[in-house]
Design a binder for these strands. Structure first.
Length: 600
RNA sequence: GCGCCCGUAGCUCAGCCGGACAGAGCAGCUGCCUUCUAAGCAGCCGGUCGGGGGUUCGAAUCCCUCCGGGCGCGCCA
């Protein structure tokens, strides 16, 4: 971080690698911290300057209040002393004390303009690389093979992908990990069904297009034909025993299912590839070692015939200790065994510093226990973070789990096509961009429909349940994907009208009008918003930020004519602001994985 | 029964590592298109932040408790 300067000016020889630290809150934080140390000594270097946005100024520092307690002095006096020690003349008008001891800052217009100009020259748009780059394993999506993804998987997929992108943007090494369900008892059934219908049959091809139909057919046979069920169970034994013929069929099943996954992820604009798939089967031959280690460490005991670990602090229904069953009484392994092996693999082989599980909140207890056992076993050394980033349930408008009218989970494919159809309907109805030909309109409808669905998943806190509502999702008002897309389309339209390339604007920003100033100031915080997502794994914070940007832009758009602006310097400045806004919005939406059509 | 999460405007949700005013969108009501896409903008209306205690100079934010809801709780994943 040392090579980074606040002013956006180049340091020494590195002029070609200009770096900025434009975020006003960070700049003020550093300055106020400096004043605290200068006034009260380095013993208070740990004191948080508490920079917050303010209703009475651009920002306020609340540091004086807690300092008053530590120093045993009046807060307003502390604030006054801090102001005396503060060196902010270059960025702010004279700070003032108000209320019980708040220090108010009103940033200088020329500073804001200068910082914005710096951002425009910065390829990273103010995103600051993490001081200590980490290897982060991000587990997300993780659907069951040969079963259609449902909206819960959809949300994990979308949110997890955004988190992964944000982590990479700040310089972490991200290992995407699609922990698919590709092993276990259901595969006996699926393999037998594949044999029955024929490997090259039309029914088998369903695996590529509509895996749920294939699964349901197998399920029906399993439930209604005892002979089929018996064969299926035998097949599971062969599968787990490594029978070559069975493994060949399993591999084929997997291949076809992956085609389905690939297509789904492509439609969703999700970055997961085949290389990211490390399903449950991947850990199969590590399971005996996992169990042996737990036994060797004296953590595993037999209880009711099953091998169990009882991590402290977990109790069940009757107040009895709750087990993590690592080997069933039939000596088979289960998902706990697999998840434990996964922990070890991520630490030992992937060398992760942090592992995030973007997984449904209903697995909270399970994962907490897996982490507890892993720590007990010493598999997760201190300093390595394993976290469950919970995904809340998706509800229908009636407030219950989202289902079809028939009571089944809504298939993902129909969900996506409905979104695209609805988007197309609205585009037609409203008379979308007359410049676009029908083919482009199709592409726009897809971007808008998919973008709306994804943004809806991203914009609300990931761990809270949310109501899936088409009408609120695909609308062009409020904190929605289409609203943000529309803002970018309007900006591009300006440049098209002017016959200019937005990448070619001169970074001659200036802020005079209130709308210009508010927009420019907000744009400076882009990097901070991205860093926050990487730290908290909460993409909805970036959504909120981008919505603010888009809202401030539309206000600017209404109040400040760009192309008609006089004199030329004002026009230049506004074009620069437009270009910067466009870059921030497209970069931000890019990090969210929300597609951005050129026009709408 | 135990554990975890949640309860903020009529609706859907932000804010919650305590700090001056509780915000947004929708819905309702007013205005604004010879002017860069009105898919928009400006404004009004609307809240005992589930109830009650506590800690604090200060609580939507932290603690306790009660009420209401969700999820989970031994061999499915």
């Amino acid at each position: 971080m040392r090579a980074w300067v606040e002013t956006g000016q180049a340091v020494g020889r590195g002029a070609d690698r200009l770096k900025t630290m434009a975020d006003p809150q960070q700049v003020l934080r550093d300055r106020v911290r400096g004043a605290i140390v200068a006034s009260f000594g380095s013993g208070l270097a740990d004191a948080d300057p508490l920079i917050r946005s303010s209703a009475f100024a651009d920002f306020q520092a609340n540091a004086a209040l807690p300092l008053a307690k530590r120093l045993g002095r009046a807060p307003r006096d502390i604030a006054a002393e801090l102001i005396a020690a503060l060196d902010v003349a270059d960025i702010s008008s004279e700070p003032s004390v108000s209320g019980p001891g708040f220090i108010n800052f009103t940033l200088r217009d020329d500073w804001i303009a200068g910082q914005a100009a710096g951002l425009l020259r910065d390829d990273r748009l103010g995103i600051v690389p993490a001081e200590h780059p980490q290897t982060v394993v991000a587990e997300y999506s993780s659907p069951n093979i040969a079963k259609e993804m449902h909206v819960g998987h959809l949300r994990s997929t979308i949110v997890g992908d955004a988190i992964a992108r944000a982590l990479e943007a700040v310089g972490h090494h991200v290992v995407r990990d699609n922990h698919v369900g590709d092993w276990g008892t259901q595969f006996g059934m699926l393999i037998e069904h594949l044999l029955d219908v024929g490997e090259n049959s039309a029914e088998a091809a369903l695996l590529r297009t509509d895996p749920n139909a294939f699964y349901q057919a197998a399920r029906r046979a399993f439930d209604s034909e005892p002979a089929f069920a018996a064969r299926s169970r035998e097949r599971v034994v062969k599968l787990q025993g490594g029978d070559p013929a069975t493994l060949r069929l399993w591999t084929q099943l997997m291949g076809m299912s992956r085609e389905y996954l690939r297509r789904t992820y492509a439609t969703l604009r999700v970055t997961l590839t085949d290389d990211d798939v490390r399903g449950e089967s991947f850990y199969n031959d590590m399971l005996p070692g996992v169990v042996a280690d737990l036994e060797a460490k004296g953590l595993a005991v037999i209880s009711d015939g099953a091998l169990c670990v009882f991590p402290p602090g977990f109790t069940g229904r009757d107040g009895r200790p709750l087990p993590v069953i690592v080997r069933k009484s039939d000596r088979g392994y289960n998902y706990s065994s697999t998840d434990l092996a996964t922990v070890r693999y991520r630490v030992d082989k992937l060398n992760c510093d942090r592992a995030i599980y973007v997984v449904g909140s209903d697995q909270a207890l399970h994962l907490a226990m897996i982490f507890a056992v892993s720590r007990e076993a010493g598999w997760i050394p201190p300093g390595i973070v394993f976290e469950h980033d919970q995904i809340g349930m998706v509800l229908g408008t009636d407030g219950t789990r989202l289902r079809t009218r028939e009571g089944e989970a809504v298939p993902l494919s129909s969900l996506l096509s409905e979104g695209i159809e609805r988007a197309r309907g609205i585009l037609d109805e409203l008379g979308a961009s007359s410049e676009a030909d029908p083919g482009e309109l199709d592409a726009i409808a897809e971007d808008v429909g998919i973008g709306a669905i994804k943004y809806a998943d991203l914009s609300t806190a990931r761990d809270s349940a949310y109501v899936f509502d088409w009408d609120r999702m695909i609308t062009f008002r409020g904190n929605t994907g289409p609203y943000l897309q529309y803002a970018t389309a309007r900006i591009r339209s300006i440049f098209r009208k002017a016959g200019l390339d937005e990448r070619g604007v001169s970074p001659a920003t200036a802020v005079t009008a209130a709308a210009e100033r508010a927009l420019a100031l907000k744009l400076l915080a882009f990097g901070a918003a991205v860093s926050q997502v990487a730290e908290t794994a909460e993409p909805h914070r970036l959504c909120g930020y981008l919505f603010d940007v888009a809202s401030l832009f539309t206000t600017f758009y209404e109040e400040c004519p760009v192309l008609r602006a006089e004199p030329a310097s004002l026009r230049e400045a506004r074009l620069a602001l437009c270009a910067l806004t466009l870059r921030v919005l497209t970069a931000g939406l890019g990090l969210l994985g929300v597609p951005v059509p050129e026009r709408m």
